[in-house]
Amino acid sequence: MKIGFLVPSMFAVGNPANGVAAQARFQAEALEALGHEVVRLNPWDWQDPAEFDVVQFFIGGFGLYTVENLRRSMAKGILVFAPIIDSNEPNFLYRLAAAAGNLHPKIFSIPGELRRQALNSDVVICRSTFERNRVVRGLGVSAAKVEVVLNGTELENSGQRHAEAVRKRLDLPEEYVLHVSAYTQERKNVVRLAEAVGPLGYPLVIAGFAQPGRELESLHALARKFRDIRVLGFLDRDSLRGLYTGCRVFCLPSRHEGTGLVALEAAAHGANVVITRNGGPPDYFGSHAEYVDPNSVEQIRDAVRTAWGKPRNAQFREFLSANLTWERSAQALAGVYGRCLEGKKSGMS
């Protein structure tokens, strides 16, 4: 199949560790490894949509306004929508906002735009059952049109020798709690994480993409109060692999997570995981993680303490290897494409 992947142009200059961009990149590479052609679509290199079997767009909303019109040019191909809905709002509020965005051509809402794009795509692919329920019950899209394709993770282990080299270079302790994210986003809840772990006396290492502002100021203030908190900033992939291998616990207590890709990567390196209960993580981590209410500092603290006291989780790595690789994700994605293309072909004949 010839497949086009389309993401919002803001990814070109935004957060370099964006999880959606990572998902698109890893799925594209895995699809190519399966023998498919994947074109990373960009506005500087026009492509004829009619030449593609599949065009899949990620996130949607106003960043890809009118993208649903591509479907008219794809006589034989299909338009696929991969929404990214990171929200804990009740579904009825989403329904109201979606309805408001369809009352008049000059009245817009983000859920209304997502609904329009979903209804005018051939299939909607979600990252979890939570997201699927949001699309079906919150946006009012037929369940028959919505599929769940789980993301995957890399299984390459950097090895203890590499982890030791990273530890020495960054002057880290032997064992630590790790967090990796765009950690100045309020949704990542890193200030509460620092408040939870600081009094425990466990070393807390925070890495990722940061922007100036109140969250960063609060975090630095907590790092001054609790000397075992280290804020490293952005690191390359090799350094992150070393951090994953060396950490004892990985904690991602976000207000909402679609998947928790960084937590999956840490788990693939043997770390015990503490993660938010909100959103998609239960589909990925099952019984292999400690789940927390992100609004409770006490729950986060207790879960980190519990995870710290457990042996490293080798069983979960075996589960990931069998079920949650990017190859598995690409196989499932290609299966959805194939069924949808066959259905469209049958409908045309």
Rank of each mutant, 00 (worst) to 15 (best):
K345P: 00
K225L: 14
T184P: 04
S321N: 13
K345I: 00
I78M: 11
S296C: 09
V166K: 05
L93S: 05
Y284M: 08
G208S: 02
G60V: 07
A263W: 00
V13F: 13
F250M: 12
A143D: 12
H162C: 07
H36S: 14
F52A: 11
N157T: 03
V7S: 05
G159A: 12
W46P: 15
L119A: 14
G343L: 12
N15G: 01
L31N: 04
N313G: 01
E290I: 01
G140A: 13
H220R: 15
V39G: 01
L70Y: 11
D53C: 07
R134N: 02
A144I: 01
F11S: 10
G101Y: 10
C126E: 10
N133W: 00
S121H: 02
L240I: 09
R248T: 01
M348Y: 07
N133R: 14
P281C: 08
L119M: 11
M10K: 13
V146Y: 10
G213I: 02
Q27R: 10
I59P: 00
K225M: 11
G246L: 10
R137W: 03
H256Y: 15
P212W: 01
V231K: 10
G14E: 05
W326M: 13
V80F: 09
T129N: 14
L114Q: 14
L333K: 07
V336P: 09
E342R: 15
S87Q: 09
F26D: 06
V136Y: 06
H36C: 13
G233W: 11
N120M: 09
A163Q: 05
R224N: 12
P253I: 00
Q27N: 12
L235A: 11
Q117K: 03
R192E: 02
L103F: 09
E131G: 08
G201I: 02
R95E: 12
D122G: 05
V123R: 13
W44A: 08
K168M: 12
E29L: 15
A210I: 00
N15H: 03
F11H: 15
D48N: 14
L96W: 11
F92I: 13
P111W: 03
A28K: 10
R71I: 03
G258Q: 00
V197N: 02
M348E: 14
A50L: 04
A50V: 02
E327A: 15
D293P: 05
T184L: 09
I229E: 03
G347R: 14
L222Q: 03
N323H: 15
E327W: 11
A194L: 06
R167N: 07
A98H: 10
V304A: 04
V273Q: 06
K168Y: 07
L79E: 07
S109D: 04
R241Q: 15
S321R: 15
P311W: 01
G280C: 06
Y244L: 07
Y183E: 00
I125V: 15
F234T: 03
P111G: 09
G14D: 10
G246D: 07
F250V: 05
